[in-house]
Design a protein around this nucleic acid. Structure first.
Lengths: 186, 186
DNA sequence: GGACCCATGTAAATAGTTACATGATTCT
DNA sequence: AGAATCATGTAACTATTTACATGGGTCC
C-alpha cells in the first residue's frame, strides 16, 4: 500500500466521494499536504476497489454522465486506522524555496531581497486565504470534538496558519539581514 | 533542467565536491530541504557535465579508487543564478504527518495522543540536533555576510529551527485539545 | 460563440526508490 | 574476523507529471 492510497481512504472515510471530488480535495484543502492529479487518482481508486478497501455505486451525477461514488469498506477502515497508528518515519522534505536560499549568496543583495519579498507577499496572501477557510468552522463541533470527521481539517488548517506565520517571521528576519548587507556593501 | 540539477549546482557552487560528497550533503544538511540517493546523483552529475554546467577532474581520493571532483563552470553558474531569480511556483507540500492528522478522528483519543506525543518527542530531538549544528557557526562571517557561500546554510538552519519550534507549539496545542476530548468522552 | 466547470479515463515521459554489484580501508 | 565508511556505478521498479482524448452543461 502506498501513501496516495491512504490519502484517498482518508478523504472517502469522512463521507462518500466521486473520483472528481477526491481530485478536487487533492487540490485544496488536502492538497496543502498531499497532492495528486486525476490521472493518478482514477487508477488508484480502481485499485483500492479491486483490493476491497473501497466500494462504489454508480449514481446519476449532476453532470451529463453517470459517476461512481466511492465509500469505505470495513476492510478499508481497518487498513486506514492501522496505518494511522503505525510508526511515522522521517518527513521527506522538499522545499524549492529553501533550496534557493541555500544558494542565495550568488545573488546581489537587491536580487535576494526581491526573492524573499515575493515569498513574503505570497505567504501573506495565503494567510488571508486560510482566514477565509477558518470562518467556515467557527465555533462548530469540529473545533472541539475529536470524533467529528472535520476535526482533522480543522487541526491541519491550524498548522497551515502556524506554519505560514512562522515563514512570515523568518522572511522578515532575513530581509532585515539583507538590508544590513546592502548598506555595508552596496 | 530539473530541480535536482539545481540542487547539485548549488552544492558544487560553494566548493568543489566529489559525487560522494554531494551524496552526503543530500542527506544532511541540504537533505533537510532536498534529498536524493546516490543512484540519482551520479547519473545527474554526468548529465550536468555533458551539458557543460559542471567540469570534473580526476584526483586520487582518500579511499582506494580515484574520484572525480566536480566544480562549477561559468555556464553552470549562469544557469544557477538565472534559476534563483526566476519566479518561484507553489511549494508542492507532501507531509505524511498532516495526512494522518486529517484522519485523526478515526483514532481513539488515547491513540491520537500517542501519535502526536511521538511527533513532539521527535521534533524535540531534531531541535537538539540543530542546536549542535548552529554551534559550528557562531558568530562567523556567514551569519552576517550575504556574499559568504555559507550564508545559505545559516539562513536555512534558522528556518529549520523556526519550523520545528512552530511544530512543537502546534503539537502542544493539539495535545491540549486531545486531553480535553479524553476527559469529556473517555 | 467561447470560456469554464463537470467528469473520467489512458499513454508517455520524467522523477525517485530499492536492489544489485564491487572492493579497499579503518575501527572494534 | 566483522562492521562501518569510502566510493561509484547500473537495473528494475514505483511514483508523479504532462499530454492526449472526449463531451455535456452553465454562465457571460
Amino acid at each position: 500500500m502506498n501513501t496516495l492510497g491512504y490519502a484517498i481512504l482518508g478523504l472517502v472515510a469522512g463521507r462518500s466521494r466521486t473520483g472528481y471530488e477526491v481530485s478536487r480535495a487533492m487540490q485544496r484543502p488536502l492538497g496543502y499536504f498531499w497532492t495528486a492529479r486525476h490521472s493518478q487518482i482514477y487508477p488508484e481508486l480502481a485499485g483500492l476497489e479491486r483490493d476491497g478497501l473501497l466500494r462504489s455505486r454508480v449514481v446519476p451525477g449532476p453532470g451529463p454522465r453517470d459517476t461512481k461514488r466511492y465509500s469505505l469498506t470495513r476492510k478499508g477502515k481497518a487498513a486506514l486506522t492501522d496505518w494511522l497508528a503505525s510508526p511515522l518515519g522521517e518527513e521527506p522534505a522538499k522545499s524549492e524555496l529553501m533550496l534557493r536560499v541555500w544558494s542565495l549568496w550568488l545573488l546581489s543583495p537587491d536580487q535576494a531581497r526581491r526573492l524573499i519579498a515575493t515569498v513574503r507577499e505570497d505567504t501573506l496572501e495565503a494567510l488571508a486565504q486560510t482566514a477565509i477557510e477558518r470562518e467556515g468552522f467557527s465555533p462548530g463541533v469540529a473545533t472541539t470534538d475529536l470524533s467529528d470527521p472535520e476535526f482533522g481539517r480543522w487541526a491541519t488548517l491550524q498548522w497551515g496558519i502556524a506554519h505560514r506565520e512562522a515563514l512570515l517571521r523568518w522572511c522578515d528576519w532575513l530581509l532585515q539581514r539583507l538590508h544590513e548587507s546592502e548598506e555595508s556593501s552596496p
